[in-house]
Amino acid sequence: MLSAQNLALERGGTRVVDSLSATLVPGQITAIVGPNGAGKSSLLLGLAGLLAPAQGRVTLEDAALASLHPRTRAQAIGYLPQTPDIAWDVAVESLVALGRLPWRDRGTAAVEAALAALALEPLRRRPVSQLSGGERARVLLARVLAGQPRWILADEPLAALDLAHQLSLIAHLRACARLGQGVVVVVHDLGIAMNHADRVLALKGGQLIADGPPQTALAPEVIAQGWGVSARWLGQPGAQALVAGQS
C-alpha cells in the first residue's frame, strides 16, 4: 500500500499540495485529476518519493519513503515523467534496459517481457528519434515495466496520444493492474478517468476535493466545484462522455 498521510508539498517555497491523506491499494488504476495548477504532478512526485514532504509523510507498506534507500524505493516504485525528452538517440532496447538500473543487473528476461508486453519487439533496434509519438509512449512505459515495480506512477502518459493509442496504453496499464501492480496516473481527460479508473482523486488548489470510485468522485457537483464548469455525463457506465458548458 502506498499512503499519503496529512501530506504537504512545496515547490520553490510555494505550497502546492496541502493536508492530503489517501491510501492507494495495488491492483487498481487510480486517476489523479484536477484543473491546471491543482498540484497533480507534484502529488505524483511526492508519492514517488521524488519531492520531500514539507509536512506529513508518504509510506510504502508502513515504511516512510524518505527513510528508504533510494535504490530500494526505485525497485518498488516506477515513475514515468510527463513527456520526458530523451537526451541520446539510443535504440529502443537500450532505452528499455535502462529500467533495470535500480536492480543493477541486465535483467534480460524482464526487458524482453516488457518489450513483448508493449509489442515493441519489431522496433527493438530502431533509434528513438525515428519513433512516432505512440511508439515513443510505449517505449517509455516499457522502460518502467522493465524495472518490475510494484507501483507504476505515470504523469499524463496519454497526453500526446491519439484515441487509438490512448486506448491501447490504457489496456496495457489495466493489464499491469490485473497482475497486481498499483497504477497511478495523472490524466486531464475526465472521460478517461470516468471510464477506465477504479478510483479517482480530484484535486483543486492542492486540496483533495473528492476521493472515490469515478461515479461519485467525478459527479457533476465535483466538476462544478473543481473546474467551475457545469457538466453532465451521458451514456452507459463504462462508456460515458462528458458534456460541459460554462456555468
Partner: peptide
C-alpha cells in the same frame, strides 16, 4: 557511468531510478 545513463530520461526519471 550508471548514473549518467539514468539521466538520459531527465533528472526526475533518473532520481526515480535511484540516482543520488
Amino acid at each position: 557511468a550508471r548514473s549518467l545513463d539514468a539521466l538520459t530520461l531527465g533528472e526526475d526519471a533518473a532520481r526515480s531510478m535511484g540516482l543520488n
